[in-house]
Simulated scan of single mutants.
Amino acid sequence: MNLSQHFTLAELTASNKAQQLRIDNTPPQELVPRLVRTAEMLERIRSTLGVPVVVTSGYRGQALNKAVGGVTSSDHTQGHAADIVVPGFGSAYQVARALAPLVSTLGIGQLILEGVKGKQWVHVSTRTPDKTSNRVITITDAGAQLGIQELV
Results as ranks from 00 to 15, higher is better:
D83F: 08
I45H: 03
L113N: 01
S47G: 15
A81Q: 06
A63C: 05
Y93T: 06
S4L: 07
R46Y: 06
S73H: 13
P87E: 02
Y93F: 14
V53P: 00
Q20P: 00
Q62T: 14
T105L: 12
P52C: 05
E11K: 12
Q78S: 12
A81P: 02
T48E: 14
T56W: 01
G88H: 03
V86K: 02
T13Y: 02
A39S: 09
G70Q: 04
D24K: 10
L9I: 08
G69M: 05
E114L: 08
A10W: 02
P101Y: 14
F89R: 05
L106C: 06
V55K: 04
N65R: 12
P101R: 14
T105F: 10
P101I: 14
A18W: 02
A10K: 10
A67M: 11
T13M: 00
E11S: 13
L35R: 02
L21Q: 13
Q5F: 12
F89Q: 03
A82K: 01
P52I: 09
Q94C: 04
T26Y: 10
V55I: 13
L99M: 04
Q20L: 11
V86W: 00
I112C: 03
L106K: 06
V71R: 15
T38M: 14
L21P: 00
L21G: 01
S74C: 07
S73F: 13
Q78M: 10
L49E: 09
P87N: 04
I45C: 05
K66I: 11
A67E: 11
S74I: 08
L113C: 01
A63Q: 15
L35S: 03
L3A: 09
I112V: 15
R44P: 01
T72W: 13
Y59I: 08
P52R: 09
E11F: 06
S47K: 15
F7W: 04
L3V: 11
H80T: 00
G61E: 03
R60M: 12
L49H: 11
T38D: 05
V86H: 00
E40A: 14
D83P: 00
V68Q: 03
A18P: 05
R37F: 04
R46P: 13
G69K: 08
R46A: 10
S74A: 14
S73Q: 15
Y93Q: 06
S73C: 10
V54I: 12
A14H: 12
L64S: 05
G109K: 05
S91R: 02
D83G: 02
V36P: 06
E40V: 09
A92D: 02
E30I: 09
L113I: 05
I108M: 08
Q5N: 15
E114C: 10
P101D: 12
N2M: 14
A100M: 03
I23D: 00
L113R: 01
A39Q: 02
P28I: 06
R97V: 13
Q110P: 03
G50R: 14
A10Y: 00
L12H: 08
N16P: 00
A81W: 02
V36H: 09
S4Q: 09
Q94D: 15
E114G: 01
F89Y: 15
V103M: 05
H6F: 09
E114W: 00
A81M: 03
E11W: 11
Q62C: 02
N16A: 14
G79D: 06
L106S: 08
